[in-house]
Design a protein around this nucleic acid. Sequence first.
DNA 1: CGCTCTATTGATAAACCTCAAATACAGTGG
DNA 2: CCACTGTATTTGAGGTTTATCAATAGAGCG
Lengths: 232, 232
Amino acid sequence: MDTDIGTSLQQPALEAFNGLTPDQYALVMQKGRVKKLQAKAYLFHQGDPAVNCFLVNQGRLKLTKLNEQGKEAIIRYVGPGELTAAVAVLRNRTYPVTAEAAAETNLTLWDKPAMMDLMHQYPDITINLLSMALERLDELQQRYLEICTEQVDQRIARSLLRFMQRAGVKVPHGIKIDIPLSRQNIADYTGTTLFTVSRTISRWEKRGWVKSGRESIIVTDPHALVQFAETG
Amino acid sequence: MDTDIGTSLQQPALEAFNGLTPDQYALVMQKGRVKKLQAKAYLFHQGDPAVNCFLVNQGRLKLTKLNEQGKEAIIRYVGPGELTAAVAVLRNRTYPVTAEAAAETNLTLWDKPAMMDLMHQYPDITINLLSMALERLDELQQRYLEICTEQVDQRIARSLLRFMQRAGVKVPHGIKIDIPLSRQNIADYTGTTLFTVSRTISRWEKRGWVKSGRESIIVTDPHALVQFAETG
DNA sequence: CGCTCTATTGATAAACCTCAAATACAGTGG
DNA sequence: CCACTGTATTTGAGGTTTATCAATAGAGCG
């Protein structure tokens, strides 16, 4: 685990188009269409026929999955520079998740044929996509390990740290997570209930590890959280 | 979920090399080296520098991940025709998981440079790898949803069904899972303890849904299991 | 100010884990 | 073939974690 937290925040990697010249990049972006989403608007639903691939320019998407009984798990948040729904487009499937704007969001999208063209024209894109998919696989495996082996409060600690690294901004007395996160969201992300999350975060607030408000969390003592995440 | 279980078992997909002519395929295989593993032998450990990419010809690999406290989660079993460790080779990382032979296993391996050459020479391979990575991501997302939202016995049911579909062979009164699976293995796969697994399977055995022995499970009533997995 | 949505907190119950002990099983060597 | 050994499995008792439910408080918005 990274012990030097808070120094290397937010590195919006436009990894999918790495290796392209600026001209090529401009061309690729021209081929896409732009779209805006209000907060809480849905982009697509799990089970919809997959038609587009999306790049987040600004804002953030929340990807969730529902089971038969209607219970929900948050798979991940997609931030600026990140791509989503390549899965479905490539394997000719319906979308395996639901995408909702967590805040006002700004996208570029390509339809299936366009995406296929790009991949054939610029093989680097395919390699980048593969690399990104493997990266996500790795992250999800890590989270799977955590949820299998650790108890709730440890998992919550890890989640906050993860959010902090991916969406942290410096504020006077700590690092603020720049995603509107309700207790329910954190619960859906860690596989617990909003009650347990609330109790846990209250406890940490009393210890001075975090400061929290309505749908907002500031981590004030990252090292304490890291320590707790690793040793319980 | 697939309701017509037991008819479409075991389809060893050599997906990585789809689209190659037989000649090309032969060439690719020639460039790899062959290796044999006894049951329980380790192929590589989490954290080892990644040097090779592996294709399982016969047998099965068990991929696991350990946390800081030494607790283990089984990420997946890799069967004939499936590839593993492409992650690490591509992203220039150490192996993110540990690979152990679950039974006597027979592999073909390529080192990093060879793998890179292949990907450049046959772009189809890159696309296939991407497709496979996305497929696994999808599967893991599904399992993540399950572990987040369902309780232990439901998850055990789903796991048995998953194993059955991937490694099931027909026997007189049901479908046998052709992997040596201890209670502990099932527990590590579903995120519970061997005791809970044991109790659960005993219950199902009394109901006639499964028949089990030492490290062996035969599913005798798949539909009952499916029903249970979906409704609890 | 009233309405709605989010968060807190407590009491209670359920699910599940931990630990201990007994039993079953497979393989080995006599 | 049998006894022996090491592992896997079963089962029970008891405790912990966490979910569930209910009631209350706070925040934001028109």
